[in-house]
Amino acid sequence: MKFTEEHEWIREEDGVYVVGITEHASEQLGDVVFVELPEEGMEVTKDEDICVIESVKAASDILAPLDGEIVEVNQAIVDDPGKVNEDPLGDAWFFKMKVTDLSPMDDYMDEAAYKKFIG
């Protein structure tokens, strides 16, 4: 599993890459009340805003961490946004993507480096 400075995690699973937000991010956001996900089949570019997440405090964007295509989104967190606070690293993943350029993965942090990053 890799982590971005935008507090997203990326995990490879059967050839596709699953993306979600970190526990630290969910704690900082506070109670999540709204999630908007991209369309399945959408072509995305690294650092493009593709999801919106709103907590009791504010709205934030979720960026595509890599170039590729969205192949599946997690409707369960749209129906019950509170899941993002309950299980951010597990059931509350955001989307799965087919990746066309994996090179940015080398720059992303492993768990130890991310822990250091958030202090």
Binding site: G30, D31, V33, V56, K57, G82
Partner: peptide
């Protein structure tokens, strides 16, 4: 602004 319980609770 909030305590450990969080805004919603």
């Amino acid at each position: 602004v909030q305590y450990p319980l969080g805004v919603m609770k």
